[in-house]
Simulated scan of single mutants.
Amino acid sequence: MKAIGYKYAGPVDGNGALQMIDMQSPKIGPHDLLVAVKGISVNPVDVKLRAARAPEDVSGVLGFDAAGTVVEVGSEVSRYAVGDDVFYAGDVTRAGTNSELHAVDERIVGKKPAKLDFVESAGLPLTSITAWEMLFDSFRLSENAGEGQSLLVIGGAGGVGSILIQLAKTLTKLTVIATASRSETETWVRKMGADHVIDHRGDMVAQLKALDLTPTYVAALTATDQHWPAIVELIAPRGHIALIDDPGNLDIGPAKPKALTISWEFMFTRSMFETVDITVQRDLLNRVSDMIDAGTLQSTVTERADALTVETLTQAHKLQESGRVIGKQVLPGLPS
Rank of each mutant, 00 (worst) to 15 (best):
G5Q: 14
K7Q: 15
G10I: 06
D13T: 07
G14E: 06
Q19D: 10
M20E: 15
S25G: 15
P26N: 03
P30S: 11
D32V: 00
V58R: 14
S59L: 15
L62S: 01
D65N: 07
T69Y: 02
D85W: 01
V86G: 00
G90P: 02
N98W: 04
N98L: 03
E100P: 05
A103V: 00
V109G: 00
E120A: 14
S121H: 07
S121R: 06
G123W: 10
P125H: 06
M134L: 09
R140M: 11
A145S: 15
E147D: 15
G155E: 14
G156Q: 11
T175P: 10
V176C: 01
I177W: 05
T179W: 03
S181N: 04
S183D: 14
V189N: 10
R190D: 02
D195C: 07
R201W: 09
M204W: 07
A206P: 08
T224F: 09
L234G: 13
I235G: 09
P237M: 04
H240Q: 08
H240G: 04
H240I: 06
N249Y: 11
L250C: 01
K258I: 05
A259G: 09
F266T: 12
M267T: 05
R270A: 07
Q281A: 07
I292M: 13
G295N: 04
G295Y: 03
T296C: 10
S299C: 07
R304L: 06
V310G: 08
T312D: 09
L313F: 00
Q315R: 14
S322Y: 07
R324W: 04
R324D: 03
I326Y: 10
P335Y: 11
